[in-house]
Amino acid sequence: MESGNLELQYFLSGITKGSIYAVVAIGFNLIYSATGVLNFAQGEFVMLGGMVAVTLARFVPLPVALAGAVVIVALVGCLLEILFFRRLQRHSILHLVIITIGLSIVLQEIALHLWDEKVRSLPYFTGNEISTLKFLGAAISPQVLWVLATVAVIVVLLHIFLKYTLPGRAMRAGSSNPSAAMLAGINIANMRTLAFGLSAAIGALAGCVISPITMTHYEMGAPLAIKGFAAAIVGGLGNPMAAVLGGLMVGVLEAYSVSRLPAAYSDVTVFAVLLLVLFVRPHGFWGRPGGESVREH
């Protein structure tokens, strides 16, 4: 294979990985904007989505299983908000973040005991493991196209939702100034629940589409969450569209690192760049600098 094609191949694999990080980062951002909490359990939504879909797919056709998984995980997300974050308004942000760490551990353990430690996967949506498409000399699996298309659709729909619909606008208002939004008659608590549900649904959908490629495993959530977290920060916290770019950057960086350095060092490269970004430009590439925050508590 020519070296040009090889580069393209790496690039495509980076974009695929990156788009998943982007989806996780979008989920982070939604919850972060609405509640100020970084939700460490975001990766578990991806894992749960895949797990539920695999189980459902045994009984119902694939599209129904996907829809079912997204709905169930969205309900789980809403439930978590109602059970924990709604009643803990007095707690500091650090405490809330630690609770999400606890939730992530518990969700992982629940998945381990509900299912088991085996690796499972959904069938390929179209074609199978060996079907490939040629793109400028690089081979890609049709599932990669599914992933990219799903991510693109999520991004566009989310943009439309946040910009042009009433609940979306209410959500943005709530995140930019909760007190003013409350005075304007917006039910902030419900907006937060909606943010958790939406974020869980997005995560679950991502978990379904990547399941054929990366497989679904009860431990897959935490590493995804950390990468997604990095993507959100590189892009700029609080900006879902920047998160997409951040995710793609992290994914491509990882793919190139694998092609140049020993595979074990791919995470080292990603996090070294992340540290650099944090130290030089802590608000990320497209984020707004926070300055001296008034909402410290």
Binding site: V97, L278, F279
Partner: peptide, 28 residues
């Protein structure tokens, strides 16, 4: 020195990233 100029979530991320680097370097 650089990390403690960051606050809240950014500091958490910087220290988490540092931890990941050490872990992966040891592993590799």
């Amino acid at each position: 020195y650089p990390a403690l100029r960051l606050r809240g979530h950014y500091l958490a991320m910087a220290t988490l990233g540092f931890g990941m680097i050490v872990h992966k370097v040891i592993l590799g």
